[in-house]
Design a protein around this nucleic acid. Sequence first.
DNA 1: CACGTCAATGACAACGTTGTCCAGCTCGGG
DNA 2: CCCGAGCTGGACAACGTTGTCATTGACGTG
Lengths: 327, 327
Amino acid sequence: MNDVARLAGVSLKTVSRVVNGEAGVHPGTATRVLAAIDQLGFRRNLGARNLRRGSSTGTIGVLLEDVANPFYSMLTRAVEEVARQYDRHVLTGSSDEDPERERELALEFCARRVDGLLVVPAGLRHGYLVPEIHAGLPVVFLDRPAGDIVADTVLVDNLDGTVQAVAHLARHDHRRIAFFGDAPTIFTASERLRGFREGYARAGLKFDEDLVAMGPHDERTILDALRRTMERADPATALVTGNNRITVLVLRALANRARRPALVGFDDFELADLLNPPISVIAHDTTALGRAAADLLFARLAGDNSPPHRVTLPVHLIARGSGEKSQ
Amino acid sequence: MNDVARLAGVSLKTVSRVVNGEAGVHPGTATRVLAAIDQLGFRRNLGARNLRRGSSTGTIGVLLEDVANPFYSMLTRAVEEVARQYDRHVLTGSSDEDPERERELALEFCARRVDGLLVVPAGLRHGYLVPEIHAGLPVVFLDRPAGDIVADTVLVDNLDGTVQAVAHLARHDHRRIAFFGDAPTIFTASERLRGFREGYARAGLKFDEDLVAMGPHDERTILDALRRTMERADPATALVTGNNRITVLVLRALANRARRPALVGFDDFELADLLNPPISVIAHDTTALGRAAADLLFARLAGDNSPPHRVTLPVHLIARGSGEKSQ
DNA sequence: CACGTCAATGACAACGTTGTCCAGCTCGGG
DNA sequence: CCCGAGCTGGACAACGTTGTCATTGACGTG
């Protein structure tokens, strides 16, 4: 900016005025300054600007498990869209379900003075965020609640989802239904398991612990789980899968089997309707989830300081056929 | 930091020393300072730090079409992974294929003093980046080349991809093959079309312009295109789709049809192997693409100033069945 | 002509850090 | 007892901006 001023033969402050479109600069002077800016390829340093003005950095941080997972990338996009309306940019970080990594990223983002933080928490302890929140940083938890602090949270109705899944399968005469879920330390996984039991209870079925296989899952554990639950004297005739990844693992494992259990998966996914049979799922509006969380964040930034909200978005079962009978 | 100094009863500079782990601070003093930091919830302002030190901001910018598209989210993740190795964070921006938006985002990222820029270009003119590149900003173009400037670029072998697709279909006795591609202004789309023609030539087939339908595509244009190419006296018996989205649109449009053309899609996608028939695709290693581009960027940051590279990654056909005959 | 008004511009401090340099203290050796 | 070395700690400037206030000169008015 100094160089620009020198080249245009004006003071630093005048350049600043031109750059900021402030009134009270002679048009001729402004033209000279703009020419100098162009010639030097000057671009004002937003870091310095924000420092001086004490204003926001214009960024928000998003912490999630893995941007490559379609579920999270849709969330990210929804957040980006809202952020754009408020002239903010998005810093993303993938925690890979590692609480320590999540903490590092969160504190790093704080040191960068993000205006707010959206977190899909991996860990259960978020005390480290308390000073930041206290210092005025808005934080919204997304898809999962914070472990040990009260804060804004936007969830989907996990429990109701698996309740509906079991009800649907029971309606189609399934009596022995298995559940393959993610690691029970993950909130959504344990909620979905809870809903699964609840569904059994409401359908008046006898719950059998042996039909539950919690993760983390990979190809091998899924094959194991299928063997344990399907190849026995009283096999499960139906299966509920606890998230999109597990659903895909199961589909792949079942691909070449003659007999397949009926199936309802948690999370909708692209092409579910084009498989044979089309896969019934518990769907929720991922975009709405991201948008709701971002809206809440920006409401906080705009000064809303009501007590922490906890929003639960509905889920709904999309019956496509795979839940109706074993094939 | 001032407050911390006051509380600990030391000078500003001593706090700075403690925060930076510099030598020459009495352990007792350090402890007092750390306690004060803890008590006040102090977190150093990285913006100010970078300003003062004139050092990097520790961020790189990634510009792409849409983070929600699995192809781009895999790229993003690969980039994030490399960035992490170099202690950098990632700012993403979706341009939605709008060159103006891309330009805005790029310049905004420059003003934020990102250390480097990875761009999947939407527009054809990138002159606006010249001053920045000249000023030392490393920029790597990814998946598509820059329109009008020479710069580092990492591509996949689009041409070879559709050449292979046509060869594969011709090998299975298809003589009339249609191509549904994206808007021809998009580099990858026009390259793939070029490869498609080249494939016809190499297979000794007679090219028919009427079997080509370039986008942008949506549900309606795909239905139109299918009608035009398939419901005629001399219908196409096979189809090459120009990217993952178009492939999915086609699959959905064909879902309830009795007769389906043979199909080869550009871009692999999850579950392609589980459809009926399994979909043959031209696959490329998306993660490798993102990694290669990021590696190149960080090489530049590390001081490599050899002439611009242009890397082309290979593609390969995965024959799964859908390319073999019409059903 | 003196004065107030207004438009245009500039000098200076400050944002929160860190690098440079210097001052004070302690301690051991001569 | 003096001196220098080594260890602590602080004062000050600077990074690139912008907010505040002062200065300059031109102009219109009584």
